[in-house]
Nucleic acid binder design. Structure first.
Lengths: 348, 348
DNA sequence: CTGTTAGCGCATTCAG
DNA sequence: CTGAATGCGCTAACAG
């Protein structure tokens, strides 16, 4: 009744409301509405108000596909999670990095969407997605040996940033990584300084650059005392590998007073198995982890480990991508390194 | 040289290749190419081959936005993960369900994309996304007290399936859930049958339907012996809550021979704290969990718990959504219940 | 079986 | 400051 605009608008709910409906209701042309929506040009205050009102009462929301098509960009960033099994998805470090990236990208006006590549079929489907201009940029979290998605990324013109430095020169994406070598070197020295000199090492899976770098850090700290026969090479990052490592070391366990592990899960496996063998941690043998995952505090004894800030990791990856999307020049092989710190608890 | 088609095609790499380029190269009209791509109508074998060849040599991939716009569907399903903190993202059950859903949806030709709602701003952004016809269907994994996204889903015409039954009648989405009550009832009876009759209970957060259902199961098994003063109501599902529960129960710990917990994390917290108090598990007090998460096997003693098959959960949720998207009629309040089983280990 | 045409909903020129 | 026109890349309906 008191409404100045008494046009009858059945909220049909069947026919979707488009920008034209808004324009008609606001009594402007739909070009003006578009301008209003994108905040670019100037729209008269009067028109703006009517448009705002129309949008509100009509419950108008622009169609995503149409906007993407016309604009040639989607305002989304796609986070690709390439994993070998479900277990990997839930690594605390990954979850935290994802949360951080989601926040940073959201703040910049991008919607982060995550796709999971956990099968050959999924890899193939996602490779296609990448080529179809699905997103304005990509974050590649590959926790797998398979480089197929990294290769697929080469076929898009959109920027890509990796969550881990690669040792492959033919995959030239900027990356963010931790000072893996330095971290492992430092905690090894920490053990050495405590008088533990007969150390063994459990290395992560060979396809992982982090695993290699961490081993290198251990080697550097050990110097001429480095003994490859006291290194166990695991196939994955899981607890089971730690247990197997301890079993393998059993014959020489009496000659050892410390085991440096490639990550927390492995360290927990080692501790569990040492316990079964009757060795006390850290009294008989000290054990260290890497990551400072939530597991580290749940372990018994609590893990002394190398901490890496996963939240910072995700945030940094996201910001690097945003910079590139803004056009900032970044070297194709640029790797930003994040610091690690030692967290002393009970296991060493 | 031997190529029959000697047209010169600079792979300019600057100008993106469209369906028209393919048509020109294959010497057909682009309508035919479209038909070929969508496999619907009949295309002559001859033309099909030339098109296939053109697509291959031109490296053509259809543009996503354009296809979505013309077709009014995106061939994607959006999994919305509403969480309060990063820690929740990585719950093993969620990760496994996601992996399963990804597989099932992928097999059906849909790309699953996950968005994370971990802040008010993200919730708002995603609510808008939902209204913009971003996906053909939605999977709502809400591990939070906040119902705002469930409400936002009411404004889309696309089907929505929830991963957990809701107790709110105004959020009428089909859901898939576990037999929470039965599971907790059965493991309680399992304890009773073992001669443990003086039981306490640690309940999950009140906003969760699962938490309520599990408590009801416990209550049913206890019958007239149910004593609300022996129920601790936790604020979340974490280890810390288990520890606090044990502290709260301390005065009556000597009168208790078993504690049934709402989930595995809480059970571990209870066990840890009982250990600090000098009680032995299960000798003095038996403890049970719920979920059979990976933690259950890492705990010491290993957890006796109620197992729920998270992979099946994700798969079922996805298939239910697929059925609805195919037009199969499903009651708005339909809830599909998945079975739970008791896993006996050491803690009870 | 195939070419032609008209939109899908919106951004973005270009005149006014 | 605003309206009208053109096209983003593709599907689908229609003739042939």
């Amino acid at each position: 009744m008191s409404e100045p605009n008494t046009m009858v608008f059945m909220t049909t709910a069947h026919k979707k409301v488009t920008i034209r409906d808004v324009a008609r209701y606001a009594e402007v042309s739909y070009g003006t509405v578009s301008r209003y929506l994108n905040g670019n040009d100037h729209v008269s205050k009067d028109a703006a108000e009517r448009i705002a009102n129309a949008i509100e009462t009509l419950q108008y929301v622009p169609n995503n596909a149409a906007r993407s098509l016309a604009q040639q960009r989607t305002q989304t960033v796609c986070l690709i999670l390439q994993v070998e099994s479900a277990a990997t998805i839930m690594q605390a470090s990954v979850a935290e990095a994802m949360a951080a990236a989601n926040q940073a990208l959201g703040d910049a006006g991008y919607q982060m969407v995550t796709v999971i590549a956990n099968s050959d079929e999924a890899v193939h489907r996602i490779a296609k997605l990448i080529k179809s201009d699905y997103a304005d940029g990509y974050l590649l979290f590959s926790l797998s040996e398979d480089d197929s998605l990294a290769l697929a990324c080469k076929e898009t013109k959109r920027p890509v940033v990796r969550s881990e430095a690669s040792n492959r020169g033919d995959l030239p994406y900027p990356a963010v990584d931790f000072t893996n070598a330095e971290g492992q070197r430092d905690i090894t020295r920490f053990l050495l300084n405590k008088g533990r000199s007969r150390l063994a090492y459990v290395c992560g899976p060979g396809f992982s650059t982090s695993a290699i770098n961490r081993l290198n850090g251990f080697r550097e700290a050990m110097g001429k005392f480095y003994d490859d026969s006291r290194v166990y090479y695991a196939d994955d990052w899981e607890i089971g590998s730690g247990e197997m490592a301890a079993v393998t070391f059993q014959p020489i366990l009496d000659q050892i007073d410390g085991i440096v592990c490639a990550n927390d899960s492995i360290a927990i496996g080692v501790i569990n198995q040492l316990d079964r063998f009757g060795y006390r941690v850290p009294d008989d043998i000290a054990v260290t982890g890497f990551d400072d995952s939530p597991l580290a505090q749940m372990a018994n004894p609590k893990l002394t480990t190398v901490r890496q800030d996963s939240y910072l990791h995700g945030e940094t990856v996201a910001k690097l991508l945003l910079n590139i999307m803004r056009g900032e020049p970044v070297e194709r092989h640029f790797v930003q390194l994040l610091p690690t710190t030692i967290v002393e608890r009970q296991s060493a």
